[in-house]
Every structure is written in structure tokens, then in C-alpha cells.
Design a protein around this nucleic acid. Structure first.
Length: 807
DNA sequence: CACGTCACTGTTTTT
DNA sequence: CAGTGACGTG
């Protein structure tokens, strides 16, 4: 069996798999079988070296990579269970798990919340406001990024002023950072970076805990090592410095995550960290044609900092890379779609054999539109992921609050959604009080008198109502499973009512998303229950799964082939027979922000290298001369990187002549026609002429959404299916929650003081005719919910509203 | 307090 | 062209 395993590898790969006696750095060129080495090595460790699956820790960059590797190992070993008990996952998910177990050692509770980037930014933003700093100078996003960077380098607040990240012009960042850390702690929350920092601190400050994990993990493997940051590198060292049984695999030429703190030095200096580290190189590319490999090599050679290597291919020579200049972003999409259709016919390919890769998510739009027109099935990865949508985030925030009431960001998100009369002023007072006393917002809400919370009696009552609402759910977590409780929360919070209050398309899609979310939740509960036999699946179990899921983790669609659209970052590790790299223009690729420094520019170049090396047979690049951006048409120059590719491997197409649209007036960039590539390709100044994007708007019949190509409808269930180990049952369709089905408990019992009652029809000055569906509150605060015929559902404060009763 | 309107502004990549 | 924040109105 084992000899069988090894015989499927080439010499370099086999050497890398067989060496198990010390630290090992495998430099794996693009397409050289990196994943193959990792999977075979793990199989080898299990079979030949007698390691138990739980003794092997394998860290990957994405959940998807981990999942695929597990599947491949299961196939290799013909053993499902062994593969399943491997400790394999992303740094973040593995460490989050360890931190839940060991939370008490570092002063957290094991039910801590994981703040996503939006939560972090929002917290930073409110701290900046509270410190009365100018948010033009202290931009929340960039301050948050700086704090993140500090954490990635294990620079704690105390050391921050002495670090190179400290900017004298922005001295207060230090204070924001300190505040931020304190607030997270009070909220019993960790952001993504804290999962690393706190793991490091846990091991650093608790030798016994570190020992425990060193004992457990006999062998540590790390994928995509070029994209690890300092914190990750140090944790790996903490776990491996005694045994030195560590294998890291990566390619410095594919390091593209420096904005996230990834440090190419980790890979360049690996041999300094371990005494006797051995270097292995994999240089034969099995993925791509010779032309693609050589074009990519010629590009990356322009970078200075790199480990020398000679990647080669013995596949067909293949065709040259192609560059197809387009007149506009619209035409760019047309060119790509036509090529997809053409190649699919010519090579009898599947839709899923094509990928469109771009630098920024925003670029997906023009392709989306064109593919709808052309009826090409597609799927967009990344971008706005399912649970970043407002309606999903709101619901998750309720769940988070129930699982961990100290969660500040969750509390702030839902305390007044749906509106319950607790406005910004009140929330600010709570925050201020909480900060003064160094407690969580929730603590203040539970004991407002103790903390001298200065609010009116009316507001105090509203807060008390809210507290009871949340505590009611908290009391049920132990006995009610996640799905039932989740459903109850959505009803009783009033979210269901709000979401079903209108019929306009936006609300309709929210309803659909929420239903999908719920049914995904139900399948999660069912599949979990199967595994853990009868034990009830708590809300927190569900949350822990959801917190670290990404849209990118959902697998490609097996039932229906589709063209993939994604950023180059998201495409890392993937391969496609045909790859389109679009938007090869200055200020897009390379991005405007990276043209300043050499380092940043080299990273952009590596990014293009990654993009090109995703292609197996065809690599087609496009650039547009005019691009619709910031609401207007702008002119773009072709990317400088085009000149970095050896012309021997590159074919530049003539810009396409659009006869019927432009037949008379020649385009400025085609003035000289001829055989050369166009004028602007030779970097001379284009003639400034006004053009419209689409001078003759083609008559296109208005199109309804194609349900068959809705890129989002499947995402969530798929993710949960993946998360629950791929075993999950089809669920019965949830009946949509009806607004009338659940009176929200308690609050509606008060008798209104005016003459307005449910069921009455009124005519409002602005909104017109409508039916009163609910009346609540007294006197000043009395308000009515009215369903207007033409204006949707509105809340009216009766003190102000101008209306008359019709009947 | 909630909601609508209007002006402004800023642009990368993601666990 | 979004998505956000300031402001006025009911």
C-alpha cells in the first residue's frame, strides 16, 4: 500500500514526503503538486510512521482547502473516520477551538463571541467618537487596519508607541488600541487577530497548557506558508520547537496577503528558526502548458526579492497568452462571454471549465450583466457573502446576544431593531456608563440603578422590557435546540414582523434569505443530532460554526456547471482549463494604492503571477480603454505588467471594430489602424475625445431575474452542509412566518389612550389610505403601525402624525 | 424618536 | 454609483 502511495509521486515529491526527521521547508512552484505532497505526507505519517490522526495538526488557509485535503486523504487511506479525526483546519478555526477549551486561563469565558471585520470597525469607530477625535484624521477603517497589523506582529498596546507601526502624526491610535482591547475583553469578544494573539499569549503564559498541546501534536504541517504572519509563525514555533517535526509548504512567488500581515520573510528565514531545517523544491508544473508557465516565469522574474527557482512544464507547448483590448468595460464583458461560448463549442468544454478573475470585487458587475443577457450560468464567489447581509447579520446578532449577552456590537445592533424606542441618545449613555465603570453594556442594562444610568422612567421601562426579552431566551438555551429557539427569537424579537411588513422586492428577498437561513439552521441541527445522538444542539454550537464560515468556503456546484467569477485572491489554490484575467489597467491592476512602493508593486506582480498560473490551457487577458467608475466614464491606460511579460509568449489582439456603432467615426486609438497593436498600447497619449459608453443603447427586452442562475440562492445551505461534514438531509420547506402568528409578548398589552384601534382605516396626509394593524404605547409615546395601500407599512407617532379616520 | 431627503465622499485584496 | 452622515419634519 505504502509503496503504492509513493509510486504515484515524482522524485522531488517523494523526497519531501519521506523526510520526517526534522523541520522541513517545501518550496512548491505553482502547479507542482503542493497539495499532493501534503496529503500523501499525512497518509504516509499515518500508515508508515504509526501516528494517530489526532496527533497530526494541519493548518490551512481556507476551510475549503482543509475539507478537500481531508477528502483526498480519506480516499488515499480508504478510511473515512481516520481522516475525520485529523486536526485539520484554518489557523483561525483550530485556534478558536483551543481558546474555547482554555478560555479561563486568559480571562475569557468559553462562550466568547468572534467579532468579524465589520464589528471591529464599528467598535473602533465608536471609540474614536467617544475620544472626540477627528474622524477625518483618524479614519476608522485605517485605524482598525493599523491595530490589526499590530496584533499580527504581536505588538500589544503597551509596546505600540515604541513600534514601527506608531505614527507620530496620529498619536492617539495608541489610545484607541488600548480602549479597543479593553472593550473587547468586557464584551467577552475576540476579533480574528485575537484568535492568534490570544493563542500565542495562552501558550506563552501557561507553560502547562503549551505542553499539553505539544504532547498532543506530534507533527505539524502548514499549507500556504508564504501567507502566514508573524503571530502565526511564532505559534507554530511554540508548538514545534522541541520536536522540530514540522513541515511547511509554500511558494514565495505566490505571497499575496501582506495587507493582512503576511510576511514573506517567514518563508525566506525559515531556516533561521529551526536548527536543521531542510529545503525541498518542487519545480515541475503539471497544471499548465509550457507557454503559460514561461509567460508567468518571465513576469515574476521582474521581482527582486525571491527564492530562485526554475519552474518548468513538460505539457504541450500550448497557445500563447492573449491580450484582448476592449473599448469599454461593457465590450470587455462581451469579448469574454463570446470567447467562453466559442471555446465551449470548440473544445466541448463545460461552463465550469472557465473562470473570470479580477482584481476587485466591484469589477464583477459588467460580467454579471453580460452573462445574464447571454444565458451563461455563473457563480460569483466572495463579494457580499450571505451572512453579511443586513437581515442575516441582524438575526445572528440576536443569537450572539443570547449566547453572550456581553457582546457589545451585537447589543448595539439589535437593541433598537426593530424600533423599540431606545435611540442613539440612550445607547450613548449606556456606553458611557459602561466605560466609566469598566463593565459591559449588558451589565449596565441589568442594573441601571446601581450604575446611576441617567434615563427617564419611560426609557428605563423600555430597557427593562428588552432585558426581559433577552433573558427569556437565555433561560431557554439549555433546554431548547438551536433551530426552535432561533425561530422563536426571530418571531418574538419582532424581526419577522418587520421583514414581512412590506411587499417591495427588497423585503421579499430578505424574507427569502431569512427562510434560507432558517432552513440551513435546521439542517445543521439535524445533522448534528445524528452525530451526537440525542444531545440537544445549542444555539452557541450553531454560532461557532457560522462565525468562521466564508462564502468562499462553499464548494463549486456539482449539480450544475457554472462559470466562476472571483477575485484573484479568492482563486488562490484553484485551477481552470481557461482563465480570463480582466481589467489589466493601470490603477486597477496594479491598484492605485500599490504603485507607491516597490514592495507593494512586487506583491501586485505576484498577484498577476498567481492569476496566470491558475490556467491550464488558455489564459486570456483583457483591458478596457474606458471604464465606468465613480459614476462617470474614465479613461484607463493598459497595465504596466503587460510589458513585463516576454512578448514571445504573448499575443496582442487588435481592438475590435464595432462596425454598426462606430462605423463612421474612427476611434482615436485606432487612428493608424495597421498591424501593430493600437496606439494607446504603445503608451502614447490617447487623444482626448468624448465618448459614451454605449452610444446606441441596444434594445434589450427587460429581463426578469433568472432564477436558475441566481448566484446566491444556494450558498448558505451549501456552507452549512460543508460545515456539518457534508452529511445533511434535505429539509422540508419552512412556512414563511406570518406577521399575525405571534403577538410579541407583553409589550402590546397596554391599552392605547387615543381613539385609534386596530383594524381602522385612516387617510394620512402623505401616505394616503391605510389600515391600522397595531396600536401601542401611551400618551406622548403612543404609536401606530399602519399598512398603507401604496406606501408600505409605516410607524406613526400619533403625537405628530397628520391623518383622518376614514372608518 | 423615526424616517426621509440630500449632500458628500471614497474607492483592494480576506481569515 | 453606492453607502454614509447630517439635517429637517411629523
Amino acid at each position: 500500500m505504502t509503496s503504492d502511495l509513493l509510486s504515484q509521486l515524482n522524485d522531488g515529491q517523494r523526497a519531501a514526503v519521506e523526510y520526517c526527521d526534522g523541520a522541513q521547508l517545501v518550496i512548491a512552484g505553482a502547479g507542482s503538486g503542493k497539495t499532493r505532497v501534503l496529503t500523501y505526507k499525512i497518509a504516509y505519517l499515518l500508515q508508515e510512521k504509526g501516528l494517530k490522526p489526532w496527533q497530526i495538526l494541519a493548518l490551512t488557509f481556507t476551510n475549503k482547502a482543509a475539507r478537500e485535503m481531508k477528502e483526498r486523504i480519506a480516499v488515499l487511506l480508504n478510511q473515512q473516520d481516520e481522516a475525520r479525526s485529523l486536526q485539520m483546519g484554518t489557523f483561525h478555526s483550530i485556534f478558536a477551538h483551543i481558546l474555547r477549551v482554555e478560555a479561563q486561563h486568559i480571562g475569557f469565558q468559553s462562550n466568547f463571541t468572534i467579532y468579524d471585520q465589520a464589528d471591529s470597525r464599528s467598535l473602533v469607530k465608536s471609540i474614536i467618537k467617544e475620544l472626540d477625535l477627528d474622524d477625518k484624521q483618524y479614519k476608522p477603517a485605517s485605524v482598525a487596519d493599523r491595530i490589526s497589523m499590530a496584533k499580527n506582529h504581536l505588538v500589544l498596546p503597551d509596546a505600540f508607541p515604541q513600534s514601527s507601526l506608531f505614527d507620530k502624526k496620529l498619536p492617539k491610535v495608541h489610545e484607541v488600541y488600548s480602549q479597543y482591547v479593553m472593550r473587547c475583553r468586557q464584551a467577552n469578544a475576540m476579533d480574528f487577530d485575537d484568535l492568534l494573539v490570544n493563542t500565542f499569549l495562552l501558550f506563552e503564559q501557561h507553560e502547562d497548557v503549551r505542553r499539553k498541546y505539544v504532547e498532543r501534536f506530534h507533527y505539524v504541517l502548514v499549507d500556504e506558508y508564504q501567507d502566514t504572519n508573524y503571530a502565526q509563525q511564532r505559534i507554530i514555533l511554540q508548538l514545534t520547537r522541541e520536536r522540530q517535526r514540522v513541515c511547511v509548504v509554500g511558494d514565495d512567488a505566490q505571497s499575496i496577503y501582506s495587507f493582512r500581515g503576511a510576511n514573506i520573510d517567514n518563508i525566506l528565514n525559515f531556516r533561521d528558526a529551526y536548527d536543521d531545517a531542510r529545503l525541498f523544491k518542487l519545480e515541475q508544473n503539471y497544471r499548465s502548458t509550457q507557454n503559460i508557465v514561461q509567460a508567468a516565469n518571465s513576469l515574476i522574474r521582474k521581482n527582486e526579492r525571491q527564492i530562485p527557482k526554475d519552474v518548468f512544464s513538460r505539457n504541450d507547448e500550448g497557445e500563447r497568452l492573449q491580450l484582448k483590448p476592449a473599448y469599454s468595460d461593457k465590450e470587455e464583458a462581451i469579448i469574454v462571454c463570446n470567447d467562453i461560448k466559442r471555446l465551449r463549442r470548440q473544445e466541448q468544454a463545460q461552463w465550469s471549465d472557465f473562470a473570470i478573475l479580477y482584481r476587485t470585487n466591484a469589477q464583477s458587475r459588467s460580467f454579471e450583466e453580460q452573462m445574464r443577457k447571454d444565458n451563461i450560468p455563473y457563480r460569483i464567489y466572495g463579494g457580499m457573502s450571505f451572512y453579511q447581509r443586513k437581515e442575516i447579520k441582524d438575526v445572528i446578532a440576536y443569537f450572539r446576544l443570547v449566547a453572550n449577552p456581553n457582546d457589545e456590537e451585537a447589543l448595539k445592533r439589535v437593541i433598537n431593531y426593530p424600533a423599540r424606542g431606545i435611540g442613539d441618545a440612550t445607547v450613548n449613555k449606556i456606553v458611557q456608563t459602561a466605560t466609566t465603570y469598566g463593565v459591559s453594556l449588558w451589565t449596565v442594562i441589568t442594573q441601571p440603578v446601581l450604575f446611576h444610568l441617567d434615563v427617564t422612567r419611560g426609557t428605563a421601562a423600555k430597557l427593562e422590557n428588552f432585558r426581559q426579552l433577552v433573558e427569556g431566551w437565555m433561560g431557554r438555551t439549555g433546554t431548547t435546540d438551536a433551530y426552535v429557539l432561533g425561530h422563536a427569537i426571530i418571531q418574538e424579537s419582532g424581526v419577522a414582523l418587520d421583514i414581512h411588513s412590506s411587499r417591495d422586492p427588497e423585503y421579499l428577498s430578505r424574507q427569502e434569505n431569512l427562510e434560507e437561513f432558517l432552513s440551513g439552521m435546521q439542517s445543521f441541527v439535524e445533522s448534528r443530532r445524528e452525530e451526537d445522538e440525542g444531545d440537544h444542539v445549542a444555539l452557541s454550537d450553531f454560532l461557532q460554526e457560522v462565525a468562521l464560515l466564508t462564502d468562499l468556503d462553499s464548494d463549486g456546484d456539482e449539480d450544475q456547471p457554472k462559470v466562476s467569477l472571483m477575485t484573484i485572491h479568492a482563486a488562490k489554490g484553484l485551477e481552470f482549463p481557461t482563465v480570463f484575467i480582466v481589467g489589466l489597467e493601470e490603477n486597477i491592476f496594479p491598484s492605485l494604492l500599490s504603485t507607491g512602493s516597490m514592495r507593494a508593486l512586487e506583491e501586485e506582480r505576484r498577484l498577476l503571477y498567481v492569476a496566470i498560473t491558475r490556467a491550464e490551457r488558455h489564459c486570456i487577458m483583457t483591458c478596457a480603454k474606458n471604464r465606468f467608475r465613480y459614476g462617470r466614464m474614465e479613461e484607463d491606460e493598459p497595465s504596466r505588467f503587460i510589458r513585463d511579460i516576454n512578448p514571445e509568449f504573448l499575443q496582442v489582439d487588435q481592438p475590435r471594430q464595432q462596425a454598426d456603432d462606430f462605423g463612421q467615426s474612427r476611434l482615436p486609438w485606432q487612428q493608424r489602424g495597421g498591424s501593430r497593436s493600437s496606439e494607446w498600447m504603445q503608451n502614447s497619449r490617447p487623444v482626448a475625445t468624448q465618448f459614451r459608453a454605449d452610444p446606441k443603447p441596444r434594445a434589450i427586452p427587460p429581463r426578469r431575474e433568472e432564477p436558475s442562475v441566481n448566484p446566491f440562492s444556494e450558498s448558505f445551505e451549501r456552507q452549512l452542509k460543508m460545515a456539518s461534514g457534508g452529511r445533511f438531509k434535505p429539509v422540508r420547506q419552512m412556512a414563511p412566518a406570518s406577521p399575525s402568528s405571534s403577538p410579541s409578548s407583553g409589550s402590546s398589552s397596554s391599552s392605547p389612550s387615543s381613539s385609534l384601534r386596530e383594524g381602522m382605516v385612516i387617510e394620512h396626509q402623505r401616505f394616503g389610505i391605510g389600515t391600522v394593524v397595531k396600536v401601542e404605547g401611551h400618551g406622548e409615546n403612543e404609536k401606530a403601525t399602519v399598512e398603507f395601500r401604496n406606501a408600505g407599512t409605516k410607524q406613526l407617532l400619533l403625537k405628530f402624525a397628520k391623518f383622518s379616520i376614514v372608518r
